[in-house]
């Protein structure tokens, strides 16, 4: 029986999972929509991963979770490592590209820049208080223009004169886009303009004051958009690499971390068939009204969180 390691990255929009072997080779992977139901998404994810490895004699011995629902899914899968997505992405990328100096990452609701020196993270930034220049902005605009996100990049490449679109804020960008469309700008020019706007916004928001040096790796769901990749290359003036598994990098990174942690707990894929549920309630003990979440498997309380003080602590 060969040992394998499972990494799950549960983002707001998509859920990613990989199974790697002891040599960090990906032996199974899946990418699907979270659809506002992280537990359900992970169940579907596990079923798919299990199918992919059922012909191989492997045993998953450690699980790592990352992404915004990392804690919830960590409790559900009894994970050995629960890591923030910034570290997970950095570890994933530096494992595959040891020389990388800059990591651009644009996901569904957030974006980050990670500066790496000699394989170590030395600086990072993550967008705050703003969704401009993220995947969900692109997908809502694609919807508005009547094209699917998947074709977005290819259409952008056909443009010769990208339209200028205000990049500061999604609200401005959207009204600018509507205006330009009504003025008669071609669809491909507007789409290319949007890709440029995303990049401008990203570099203004996150790249300010950061030392952006090649080699640069671009990842996250938006890295699949070839139009944005090209806009990045034009803006920074050098090649921007996109890994074929760039959208899985967080999951890959946390799988590597789970492997490195050295703690082994046999993982059974039948977790996907168990009944998990969460119960939320507002703690009445003070005016903070903490929203406390309890995670149950059947009737067994697995974990609880959300309390600010000891009064609201739920003992497992």
């Amino acid at each position: 029986m060969k040992k394998a390691y499972l990494g799950i990255d549960i983002g707001s929009i998509s859920t990613k999972g990989v199974v790697i072997d002891a040599k960090n080779q990906i032996i199974a992977s899946e990418y699907l929509w979270t659809e506002g139901d992280p537990m359900g998404a992970v169940k579907r994810l596990l079923k798919s991963l299990q199918k992919q490895i059922k012909d191989q004699t492997v045993q998953v011995v450690a699980v790592g979770t990352t992404g915004s629902a990392r804690k919830l899914i960590g409790a559900m899968t009894n994970a050995t490592v629960v890591k923030n997505e910034i570290t997970a992405h950095a570890i994933g990328t530096t494992t595959l590209y040891p020389d990388v100096n800059t990591i651009f990452e644009i996901g569904g609701q957030d974006s980050k820049i990670i500066i790496v020196e000699n394989g170590f993270v030395v600086d990072y930034a993550m967008n705050t208080l703003c969704a401009a220049g993220t995947g969900s902005f692109l997908s809502s605009q694609a919807h508005r223009l009547g094209v699917s996100v998947a074709e977005f990049g290819a259409i952008a490449l056909t443009s010769k004169h990208p339209t200028n679109i205000a990049a500061r804020c999604t609200v401005f960008a959207e009204s600018d886009l509507v205006h330009k469309a009504q003025m008669g700008h071609k669809k491909e020019d507007i789409i290319a303009g949007l890709c440029k706007a995303v990049v401008t916004n990203y570099l203004n928001n996150l790249g300010k004051g950061k030392r952006i040096k090649a080699p640069i790796v671009f990842q996250g769901g938006v890295s699949k958009n070839i139009g944005v990749k090209k806009a990045f290359e034009e803006a920074v003036g050098c090649e921007v690499m996109v890994d074929p598994n760039g959208h899985l990098m967080g999951a890959f990174g946390v799988a590597v971390l789970a492997k490195q942690a050295g703690i082994e707990r046999h993982f059974n894929f039948n977790v996907a068939d168990l009944d998990f549920r969460t119960k939320g309630f507002e703690c009445p003990k003070c005016a903070n009204h903490c929203e406390i979440i309890c995670v149950y498997q059947g009737n067994k309380l697995l974990d609880a969180w959300g309390n600010k003080c000891d009064n609201g602590a739920v003992r497992v």
């Binding site: 890591k83 923030n84 570290t87 170590f120 030395v122 600086d123």
Partner: peptide, 18 residues
């Protein structure tokens, strides 16, 4: 999330002899 990443970064910088 940012604080956790901050800690990881500080620890990694130290480890890397930076």
């Amino acid at each position: 999330t940012r604080l956790e990443a901050f800690y990881d970064m500080v620890a990694a910088r130290h480890q890397g002899g930076k």
